[in-house]
Simulated scan of single mutants.
Amino acid sequence: EGKHRGGDLKTRSTEPVSAVTGSPLTAALPASTTGKKSIVLSSETRKELGKQTKVTKEERRAQIDERHRYLISRLADGIGLSEQEVEEAIISDDKFQLLEQFFAPNGLKKLLFFYQDVLQQKTNASLRSDGSTNSLLHKKLFITMGSTEDFTGTCAFFLRTSDKAVTASNVSQEMNFGIFDCSNGNILQGLEFFLSQIMIPALKSQQTWGAVKEGLKNSQIQDFLYSVDTFVGTLSSSRQNIEDKIQLTKMDIDIYLGNLQNPSDYITAG
Rank of each mutant, 00 (worst) to 15 (best):
R5W: 12
G6C: 13
G7H: 09
K10Q: 07
T11I: 15
T14E: 08
E15Y: 07
P16W: 03
A19C: 04
T21E: 08
G22C: 02
A27P: 00
A28H: 07
A31T: 11
S32F: 05
S32C: 05
T33N: 07
T34V: 14
T34C: 05
S42G: 00
R46V: 00
E48R: 09
G50K: 05
K54E: 14
R60D: 05
R61K: 14
I64A: 00
I72V: 14
L81F: 04
S82N: 08
E83K: 12
E85I: 00
A89S: 15
A89V: 09
F96T: 03
Q97A: 13
L98I: 03
F102S: 04
A104W: 05
L111R: 00
L111F: 06
V118W: 02
V118K: 11
L119R: 05
L119M: 11
Q121P: 00
K122W: 06
A125N: 04
G131E: 12
S135H: 13
L141S: 03
T144D: 03
T144I: 07
E149R: 06
D150K: 14
T152R: 12
R160C: 05
D163S: 13
N170K: 03
N170P: 01
S172R: 13
F177V: 07
I179E: 04
C182H: 03
S183M: 09
L188W: 02
L188Y: 08
L191S: 06
F193D: 09
F193Y: 08
L195A: 05
S196F: 07
I200H: 04
P201H: 03
Q207N: 08
Q207C: 02
W209C: 07
S219M: 10
D229M: 02
G233L: 12
T234E: 10
N241F: 02
E243W: 01
T249L: 09
I253H: 03
I255C: 02
L257P: 00
G258E: 13
N259E: 11
L260H: 01
D265H: 10
I267W: 08
